[in-house]
Amino acid sequence: MAEVEVVVVAVRDIFQDEAGRKSLFSEEYKSLSALIILDKQDMAGLAVKDGDKLLAKNDAGSIVVAARASKDDAKEAHPGLAFMCSSPWYNQLVSDDSCQGSVKATLAPTAEAITAISEIQARMKS
């Protein structure tokens, strides 16, 4: 199974922010938070297309997120650099001693379901 190492940078998005304000427990918030924006080269390396699921993991934890290709053109290609909105999903990959602004993670295609907020809540209590 293909694997790609990336640096995931936490970003803001007005639509995700709005969805989170309305409800952290909504499908809309999940779909905008459990989402990783990748360079087209990394999408090709992983053999995934928009909406395919990826397991993102590192020493801090793991999550299943949906992949989406970045809209940046070849001139601004960013292989190895991925983006996720700040959210409880992104925070699953942040360790206490790492900078919260960006983390390293390994990505691999998966058939598992996107991590639910209830799963994140259960992990906190475990």
Partner: peptide
């Protein structure tokens, strides 16, 4: 619990 790294949360 939403905003902090998983270990701290």
């Amino acid at each position: 619990l939403s905003e902090l790294p998983i270990g701290t949360a």
